[in-house]
Write a protein that binds this DNA or RNA. Sequence first.
DNA 1: CATAGTTATATCGCACACGATATTATCGAA
DNA 2: TTCGATAATATCGTGTGCGATATAACTATG
Lengths: 157, 157
Amino acid sequence: MSSSDDASDLELPSRAEVLICFALYSANHAMNRSYQPHLSVLGLTYPQYIALVGLWEGDGITVGQLCKRLFAETSTLTPVLKRLEKLGHVERRRGRQDERQVFLYLTPSGRALEKEAPNITDCIIADTGVQLDKLSDLVVAIGAMRDSLLKNRNSRE
Amino acid sequence: MSSSDDASDLELPSRAEVLICFALYSANHAMNRSYQPHLSVLGLTYPQYIALVGLWEGDGITVGQLCKRLFAETSTLTPVLKRLEKLGHVERRRGRQDERQVFLYLTPSGRALEKEAPNITDCIIADTGVQLDKLSDLVVAIGAMRDSLLKNRNSRE
DNA sequence: CATAGTTATATCGCACACGATATTATCGAA
DNA sequence: TTCGATAATATCGTGTGCGATATAACTATG
């Protein structure tokens, strides 16, 4: 309602609902909250679950490789991985040739959690109210947008 | 690479790239990072910007109303709003009839920031690499998914 | 084989994000 | 009208998220 007299620069979609940044922001938090009850049963937080998803895709990789896979920073992942280690789901082992590197391995416990994932995913997919094929399109579109954002961000610095 | 011999429970899309939760998670962070250089010039964080977007849509509302508008919790918004107040962009005023309520008003400084938003939005939209009409479809689809997630979450408790 | 530069990870500081709890104010029924 | 129930914010504790910096290890060049 603020200054509706000048509509000159209000032609563009500026309302919260129509901003792509807000759509992603609110949907991500909604997704986080939807997972929460499922994950708390397993004693996991949402980012811990995301990290495990990355490792279920293939472990024995370095912290840096997992960072790339998850588009995350080491300053974010290191504490998450240390908690996953303390929970007994992940083992962190220094590289032998290159002692700077830290390799990540799933423990039997961390591997066992993967079997719970499909049940959770099914619940979440149902809650989205989106058909599977449409959801697949969404994932592709959102992923492409993310890649473009990261590419253009890096090309500007 | 882990146990590729048994493909029994790997038929479902379980890889990080194809999970909707991961798409939202990584795209939201990418968006955050893309906004960051634009916002740091204005001395704003991404959540502070989101809160301002909510108030530009109409101020003089209560903290609770802004929470609903942004799908956020009061425990998240209160500190953000106090920082926006300290920055001089927002004024928080206790209600007279109901002294529990806190009404939020944009200051001239907070209102002036709205004029910067279109320039930033244009940059971001360009960086997404998505055509405007496709982007609009994405916003609608993601918003609908968010609403469905929140509805089904609430209906379960 | 020193040593400057680079790389991989970790640490730190600040700002969210949110459930749980606290605080204060309003409402409602006996 | 008083006191328990409810409601609106705020506070607190834990866990991210990330830029900046630190630390330790590798590499390259002289």
